[in-house]
Lab assay of single mutants.
Amino acid sequence: HAATELTPEQAAALKPYDRIVITGRFNAIGDAVSAVSRRADEEGAASFYVVDTSEFGNSGNWRVVADVYKA
């Protein structure tokens, strides 16, 4: 099962156990969220919340930071 994305309210009520950072070329924010979901799932997380997204220069590469939560 894939890790689910939390709302800001849900994330605020929970304590993350880790923070992950992924970088890559994403065509849309949805693609980045899917990549975070896969990584969170690999780490055994039940859910995640994207904290920050930023573009690296003009290369089209993105850096996505997310907190991950157990259950």
Rank of each mutant, 00 (worst) to 15 (best):
71 A>I: 11
35 A>G: 03
41 D>R: 15
11 A>W: 04
42 E>C: 12
5 E>G: 07
15 K>W: 08
28 A>D: 15
29 I>L: 13
42 E>H: 09
48 F>A: 00
46 A>F: 11
23 T>M: 11
61 N>R: 10
11 A>G: 03
10 Q>A: 08
55 E>A: 08
42 E>T: 07
12 A>M: 11
16 P>K: 03
49 Y>P: 02
66 A>G: 02
41 D>M: 15
62 W>D: 01
43 E>L: 15
33 V>D: 01
20 I>C: 03
25 R>C: 09
64 V>C: 05
59 S>G: 12
52 D>T: 11
51 V>S: 02
4 T>D: 06
41 D>P: 02
13 A>E: 12
55 E>L: 10
28 A>Y: 09
1 H>L: 07
55 E>M: 10
57 G>H: 06
69 Y>V: 03
41 D>Q: 15
30 G>A: 14
25 R>P: 09
24 G>N: 01
37 S>Y: 03
2 A>E: 10
2 A>F: 14
58 N>A: 13
65 V>F: 05
25 R>F: 14
65 V>C: 07
39 R>G: 01
63 R>Q: 09
6 L>D: 01
29 I>D: 05
27 N>K: 12
11 A>K: 04
3 A>S: 08
41 D>H: 15
59 S>E: 14
3 A>N: 02
29 I>V: 11
39 R>I: 11
54 S>G: 08
55 E>D: 08
3 A>Q: 02
40 A>E: 04
23 T>P: 00
41 D>F: 15
52 D>M: 13
27 N>I: 10
68 V>K: 02
15 K>Q: 12
12 A>N: 11
30 G>F: 10
71 A>Y: 12
70 K>T: 08
47 S>G: 11
38 R>C: 08
34 S>Q: 14
57 G>E: 10
19 R>F: 04
48 F>C: 05
19 R>V: 04
16 P>T: 02
67 D>V: 09
34 S>Y: 09
44 G>N: 05
54 S>V: 14
68 V>W: 05
50 V>H: 01
46 A>H: 15
25 R>S: 10
17 Y>C: 10
36 V>E: 01
58 N>C: 11
9 E>Q: 11
31 D>F: 06
3 A>V: 12
66 A>K: 00
4 T>C: 15
17 Y>D: 03
51 V>L: 06
37 S>F: 04
48 F>E: 02
60 G>M: 05
16 P>V: 03
35 A>V: 07
35 A>Y: 05
2 A>Y: 14
17 Y>R: 01
53 T>A: 15
11 A>V: 04
50 V>T: 01
45 A>Q: 02
10 Q>P: 01
66 A>I: 13
33 V>N: 04
16 P>I: 03
53 T>G: 06
12 A>T: 07
69 Y>G: 01
30 G>I: 12
70 K>E: 09
38 R>P: 00
70 K>L: 12
60 G>Q: 06
45 A>V: 04
15 K>R: 11
42 E>N: 06
15 K>L: 11
2 A>N: 13
33 V>P: 01
63 R>E: 08
62 W>K: 04
10 Q>I: 06
1 H>Q: 10
18 D>I: 11
52 D>I: 14
24 G>L: 06
36 V>A: 07
45 A>W: 14
52 D>Y: 14
34 S>P: 04
29 I>M: 11
23 T>H: 11
53 T>E: 05
40 A>K: 01
11 A>Q: 03
8 P>V: 09
50 V>M: 07
25 R>G: 05
23 T>N: 07
32 A>G: 03
51 V>W: 04
60 G>F: 04
43 E>C: 15
2 A>P: 11
25 R>E: 09
45 A>S: 04
59 S>Q: 10
1 H>G: 12
34 S>C: 14
5 E>Y: 06
39 R>V: 10
2 A>C: 15
50 V>I: 15
4 T>V: 14
1 H>F: 08
49 Y>H: 08
26 F>M: 03
39 R>M: 11
44 G>A: 04
25 R>L: 08
16 P>Y: 03
30 G>R: 11
29 I>Y: 14
8 P>D: 09
34 S>E: 14
60 G>D: 07
43 E>K: 11
48 F>D: 00
31 D>S: 06
3 A>H: 03
49 Y>L: 10
40 A>V: 06
6 L>V: 02
60 G>C: 07
43 E>T: 11
26 F>L: 03
21 V>S: 06
55 E>F: 14
57 G>R: 06
27 N>T: 12
51 V>I: 11
54 S>Y: 15
11 A>T: 03
9 E>G: 09
53 T>Q: 08
11 A>S: 05
55 E>N: 11
63 R>L: 12
65 V>N: 01
1 H>P: 08
10 Q>C: 13
43 E>V: 15
38 R>Q: 11
4 T>Q: 12
20 I>F: 05
66 A>C: 07
36 V>L: 08
21 V>P: 00
20 I>R: 00
13 A>F: 12
59 S>F: 09
57 G>L: 08
65 V>Y: 05
12 A>K: 12
28 A>H: 14
1 H>W: 07
56 F>I: 15
15 K>H: 10
21 V>C: 11
